[in-house]
Amino acid sequence: MRIEISANEAGQRLDKFLRKLLKDVPLSAIFKALRKGDIRVNGKKQKEKYALEIDDVVEIRYIQSKAKSEKKENFIKVDPKSIKIVFEDENVLIVEKWPGVLVHPDAKGKEATLTDYVLSYLNAKGDYIPENEVTFTPAPCNRLDRNTSGMVIFGKNFESLRELNSIIRENEVKKYYLALVKGRVKDGMMKGYIKKNEDANISKIYDKQIPDSKEIKMEVKTIESCGSFSLIEVNLITGRSHQIRAHMAHVGNPIIGDSKYGDRKLNSFFDNKYGLTFQYLYAYKLNFRDVDGKLEYLKNKTITHSLPPIFKKIKRDVFRFEI
């Protein structure tokens, strides 16, 4: 097997590239082949930490991989016309996620995800041709719960995906949400500890650290309040699973429409009046801060997206008069 390294493979460690390329080959067999010289780069043995460069030639001998021989689309093909683009250039794609769709596949992997819609969109416009790629697939850099809506960032090439993941990990991208919650909220920094029950898919918040819990932080600011309800902006600093939803419920301000952590009576009212069957939580703003490298042009750029029509109507009604 002979592979020429393109821009979407360059920069990766050799062992990580091989693990993605030879998915069905045991890692021990890959390392053994590297030691024996059965895997060479530009005709020479290389260490597993070698950083691949454009136009490198990787030669693999004596290893058979079904993953490589089965060159087929690695996503569920759907009609991408319904996808809403918030921002796009040659490196980055930001799309609006709608309630009810997963960002990544679950264990069953049978339903189309937001990633499938994005890959179908990029494939239709010729920006992503699976059979032309060795290991790279455009991928999301942030995630939202199934019934949370708003902006999700995708990297369209390997270098951009790597840089996006890096700046998000280093908190150089501020992520802001709008949420409608019960009651008045105390503005400021909210801290605590979160522990998730994976079997029940429920997160619990604690004021003090307990075993296996993780620290959480978010900054909350009231945008509008009528006493019974408040529209808040959340600057999410640590992005733990269900963090905003569980923490707001913990402090007595559950998000309207949240079937898992919310107020059942209020949820029933908003369902009957507006057909709201998901939480009023929307990832509406991204602020790119200290960005360099390939994505330096995004430095200090803010991208926002308006609330969906159902959220706008509820907001208009709630603050016109108290329900």
Results as ranks from 00 to 15, higher is better:
residue 221 K to I: 13
residue 64 Q to D: 15
residue 55 D to S: 03
residue 224 E to L: 13
residue 147 N to P: 04
residue 271 D to A: 15
residue 148 T to R: 01
residue 315 K to Q: 02
residue 163 E to M: 11
residue 239 G to W: 13
residue 104 H to D: 04
residue 307 L to P: 03
residue 141 C to R: 08
residue 106 D to E: 06
residue 240 R to P: 06
residue 273 K to V: 14
residue 255 I to P: 13
residue 311 F to S: 11
residue 239 G to V: 13
residue 204 K to N: 10
residue 320 R to P: 03
residue 120 S to F: 09
residue 112 A to P: 15
residue 128 Y to Q: 00
residue 234 V to N: 06
residue 125 K to S: 10
residue 169 R to H: 10
residue 42 N to I: 02
residue 221 K to A: 14
residue 55 D to P: 00
residue 108 K to A: 14
residue 74 N to F: 04
residue 16 K to R: 15
residue 116 D to G: 09
residue 166 S to I: 07
residue 124 A to Y: 01
residue 185 V to Y: 07
residue 133 E to P: 02
residue 76 I to F: 12
residue 234 V to D: 12
residue 301 K to R: 15
residue 302 T to E: 15
residue 192 G to D: 10
residue 313 K to N: 08
residue 98 W to E: 14
residue 82 S to I: 03
residue 228 S to K: 03
residue 168 I to V: 14
residue 233 E to D: 11
residue 315 K to H: 00
residue 295 L to F: 09
residue 40 R to T: 14
residue 158 F to I: 05
residue 236 L to M: 13
residue 88 E to G: 09
residue 158 F to E: 11
residue 71 K to W: 00
residue 19 R to D: 01
residue 277 T to Y: 04
residue 51 A to H: 12
residue 153 I to D: 03
residue 68 K to W: 13
residue 321 F to M: 07
residue 146 R to C: 03
residue 26 P to V: 14
residue 188 G to F: 06
residue 102 L to A: 08
